[in-house]
Amino acid sequence: MEQIKHLILKDLSFRFKLGLLCFLFTWLFIFGIATSGKALFTYVLMLVPGLLFSGFIMYNCYLEDNYSTLTFLKSLPVSKKMLIQEKFLLSNLFIVIGIIETFIFYLLLPAIPFPFQLSHIFLSTAVMEIYFGTFLYLFYRFNFFASRFPPNVFVMSLLFLHLKKIEFQSITIPLPLATVILIIALIVNYLLMIVSIKKMR
């Protein structure tokens, strides 16, 4: 666990300024959406970890998408398993940070109606679990070029929903169903981690 902690700190520090910028941007983003009157709560829940993921993990994956860097990392006293577990752990941490950050914002601005629905949190978390897991699997199995596929699909899907005037939070999903979807997404994320470890290039 100690080595995984150092790998996480490495990911946070190697591009600290860019990551910090992404983190600050998430606040600006929440503020912008919340004050626009739309209160796109679930979008914020997805985009905060999404931005953090782009700033820290994706950039580090880009740096590590090189034979020499991967070789260098593997030569250190860490295993392949630790290298992959670290990225999955950090991406899950970003999901938790996204939820906490969004809640803090809504608590700080009580004038904005609080659109809290547990099923929406579960659903947005499920989407991010699949998104992050697929990205990391494609990165470790193939390369950074291949891993750029899920972000594109993700952005296009959001655009499609927007064009169809479907607002994510207007979708009513019963809590038991949302719970099942979240559990499935967590299992898929875990399986993607296991497959990434077994099939690492």
Binding site: F14, L63, N66, Y67, S68, T69, T71, F72, L73, S75
Partner: peptide, 12 residues
């Protein structure tokens, strides 16, 4: 260990 390829973390 010192490996043969040393072009790691080029931008760091």
């Amino acid at each position: 260990y010192v490996g043969e390829s040393l072009d790691f973390y080029e931008k760091v």
